[in-house]
Design a protein around this nucleic acid. Sequence first.
DNA 1: CTAGTTGCAAAGAGTTTGCATGGCG
DNA 2: CGCCATGCAAACTCTTTGCAACTAG
Lengths: 136, 136
Amino acid sequence: MSKYITKQRKLLLSFLENHVDSQLSTSQIANELKDDSISVSSVYRNLSDLELEGKVRRYVKAGNREAYYQYMASDKCKGCLHLSCKVCGRTFHMGTEGADLLVNTIAQTEGFSLDMSDTVLYGVCSACRRNSGQDD
Amino acid sequence: MSKYITKQRKLLLSFLENHVDSQLSTSQIANELKDDSISVSSVYRNLSDLELEGKVRRYVKAGNREAYYQYMASDKCKGCLHLSCKVCGRTFHMGTEGADLLVNTIAQTEGFSLDMSDTVLYGVCSACRRNSGQDD
DNA sequence: CTAGTTGCAAAGAGTTTGCATGGCG
DNA sequence: CGCCATGCAAACTCTTTGCAACTAG
């Protein structure tokens, strides 16, 4: 996969890197990048290459048809759980200590070995929770 | 939604009830039921009705295009987290106490309010973990 | 009998693919 | 210069929808 570093690939990657904290739909990505003359097919092809390389993670949100992608910042995401805010859409990283504790707790109480890289915790972040009293 | 109880709806529901512990793809469901002369459209329509009624939950698995549905056994699922085994596909229910503890822990350490009905924890169940040394 | 539901097939939405052209190395 | 990646459009897959016939109540 991806033996050449093309202009399109570079632009796609830098776009994703600039949005590390959000999950972007393919149409969002394709839309932003079509101004830089990157075709939809290239977006799709590069995105799946990047997924195979582990640089990007693919999600499908509930009630949604299209795929969402998120840049997995190198080491930052290793060994940590992802919290996704349903209100603002941002992703938060639960630190290794917290994540490990959680994994261990579940292993002990449920005998279930949680896979951190496959699990996304959905909920509401503190900022959005603070606002929810007013406009939600 | 669904004011009449039709033959198709009954068959679909009973099929789902017989598979409470697994997530079924729409094609799986449609395939099983086409022997009972239920059309694909009816499967889709009833499935989304059931989802709105809260009797069924819709998932989209990673790397998969089609939707998966699972019957949400009445009260059994209220206030408990779902653990999905990536090996055998079965769903396990984390009891209210454990789930509450987990939610509270995350609320305190991360300030994140976890939504239990939206979150599925992926990993490997104890039975599959026991076998993994041998055939996996 | 009336209104909701079904089945079919056609339409949609998102994604993938074939092939000729273009660009990385 | 050779091979990979791109772009375009056509093909595909899963899902939704319109409409006439059917059926539950």
